[in-house]
């Protein structure tokens, strides 16, 4: 059960993070919507509240330590602490390595990996103090490697290492740290792909189908509960079996 738990979901004003926020709110959690896009944060919080859910919006740049610390301070004073952190914010700059710039690398690593590190660092002490905490990192099946995905794959692989290290470090305090590795999920980004790319990717999919954002939300909800207290340091692939076969 996650009833009355306070959950901070980064990058949750749209896509997978937004749908996860709605799922967790429906399960009784108090949700904190974070994004850098203020308009979307306000809109998402309004929609949550309109459905009778308890929600708070915080505009913050997760790549900036001071911004993250301010966000955690705001949430802590409004909701008296954070129980569950979902490091969901992510972005990708893709392309062959000859075309990738240093800036492509830096921004991808910063948003996906540094952001997760800064948020984990900022919330972990209160979780340790409480003797309960859930850190759920949204990585990607792409951490296994992908042609044209050097920065993204590296960042997501880094998240797996972060997940496992934090699990080893904080396990004894009742804080678990796990990763979810989504495969192909139906998001707005999918709809923007060319028809032939979509066809190709689907042909590689054992289920022959895309996952939905609620499949990720379901996995997050499972790992967030007290029922999963003996699960830590794990990578749960939510990918319709795509992690099992050759690309």
């Amino acid at each position: 059960m996650i009833e009355n738990r306070v959950v901070l979901i980064t990058g949750s004003a749209s896509g997978m993070g937004r749908d996860t926020a709605f799922a967790m709110a429906a399960a009784g959690a108090k949700v904190v919507i974070n994004d850098i896009n203020e308009e979307k944060v306000v809109q998402t919080v309004e929609e949550l509240k309109a459905q009778g859910y308890e929600a708070l919006g915080v505009v913050a740049n997760i790549c900036d330590r001071a911004s993250v610390e301010d966000m955690v301070g705001t949430v802590t004073s409004e909701f008296s602490g954070i129980d569950i952190l979902v490091n969901n914010a992510g972005m990708e700059r893709a392309g062959p390595i000859r075309n990738l710039s240093e800036e492509d690398w830096d921004i991808t690593i910063n948003v996906n990996l540094k952001g997760a590190f800064l948020c984990t660092k900022a919330v972990h002490s209160q979780m340790v103090k409480k003797g309960f905490g859930r850190i759920i990192n949204i990585a990607s099946r792409a951490w296994l490697g992908g042609s044209g995905q050097a920065p993204y794959s590296s960042a997501k692989a880094g998240m797996v290492g972060l997940t496992r290290s934090i699990a080893l470090e904080l396990g004894k305090y009742g804080v678990t740290s796990n990763c979810i590795a989504p495969g192909l999920i139906h998001t707005p980004m999918w709809d923007e792909l060319e028809e032939k790319t979509r066809k190709y990717l689907l042909s590689k999919q054992p289920t022959g189908k895309l996952g939905e954002t609620r499949d990720i939300a379901n996995a997050v909800c499972f790992l967030a509960t007290e029922e999963s207290s003996f699960i830590t340091g794990q990578v749960l692939y939510v990918c319709g079996g795509r992690s099992l076969c050759a690309s």
Partner: peptide, 27 residues
Amino acid sequence: NAIGYFAADAARYVTGQTLFVCGGRSM
């Protein structure tokens, strides 16, 4: 609890996976 997750409709997009319920020992 983990079996309950995999057995549920909620896990319809999860297949072929191995989840360690081991308090992190697998690491």
